[in-house]
Design a protein around this nucleic acid. Structure first.
Lengths: 167, 167
DNA sequence: GTGAAAAGCTTTAAGCTTAAAATAATTTAG
DNA sequence: CTAAATTATTTTAAGCTTAAAGCTTTTCAC
């Protein structure tokens, strides 16, 4: 059984440009799942807290670093460009939820961190956010959540590896 | 077996604000995986074809509908707002890869479709795109790809269900 | 048929995001 | 020590994206 399947797959590879439909479907489904959740989270953050997702994300990073973080580190963790973080942080400073000052040792770098107000606001939002996410995944068993975690971990590793090689 | 697990879960809910860390980790990992792939695809589309991801996405939808599609249908399939599609389509019409005309029966609606030039361009990009995706997932076995497809299908269903209820 | 509601689309204003180029400070090579 | 390379960040221009408000056309209830 398994043998014949493998042979079929091999045969296909040789008789025509390999078909990668399953991988393509996987990518489309991954993207759709993410978009669906992201859209809902965005909506609730706006309606219930009047905040945007990027701002919430930035605050979430800072919440884990009480001592603050440089803009560069923020942009790496958020997987967005430097310029993006510059503008986002600026708006959050204006709002008074983030503070910003020069780094002690390196005069190029700037440290940002949550203000007390920012931390209070974030903690409140984070609690709701965690409940929302649990609710959105409520149709999955604990086992399925674990499997997804594992498989997505592999997918991430595979992607990183391929991206690495492509350079 | 199932009973005891259910009781544990219940107990947790009562003794402390339920902890949903695994679901949260799952969401963060899902988002990270998607972002990683999306960033790479975006980069290659730009470098190798001088096209943006949203434009590629729009063309991909149209490629499946030779008879054309209304802007509303496009926006639903792409999971973006109407206004977004209006602008995107406009730029693609200017480029000459998409055509646009009033619908025959409904004078509110506009049908867009790929021009011959657009279709040729898209097909070329789509081939490369399919290879890229296969390459990014090359570290996964066929079995793992299938499992991910299944689990993500469940995740999508779970999300849709939760979003539905929340209204 | 007529008025109200819904559907399809566009416009607007604001904010997000990127790539690329520029500036300034630090590190490294020789 | 000095020139070159690297690092941290900002700026710019272009495009993407959204929510909300508005316009036009169609559908629905009566």
């Amino acid at each position: 059984m398994e043998g014949s399947i493998a042979i079929d797959a091999e045969t296909k590879v040789h008789e025509s440009p390999a078909d990668h439909k399953d991988e393509l479907r996987l990518w489309l489904r991954l993207l759709a799942s993410t978009t669906l959740i992201e859209r809902e989270v965005r909506r609730r953050l706006r309606e219930q807290f009047g905040v945007t997702l990027p701002r919430f994300d930035l605050m979430a990073q800072l919440d884990r670093s009480p001592q603050g973080m440089t803009l560069g580190e923020l942009s790496r963790r958020m997987m967005v460009t430097n310029g993006n973080v510059t503008g986002l942080a600026e708006r959050l400073v204006t709002e008074g939820v983030v503070s910003r000052r020069r780094a002690a040792n390196d005069r190029r770098a700037h440290l940002v961190r949550l203000t007390d107000k920012g931390r209070r606001q974030f903690r409140k939002m984070a609690k709701a956010h965690e409940r929302w996410i649990a609710g959105l995944f409520a149709g999955l068993s604990k086992r399925e959540v674990d499997e997804l975690l594992t498989l997505l971990g592999k997918a991430k590793a595979s992607t990183r590896n391929a991206v690495e090689k492509a350079r």
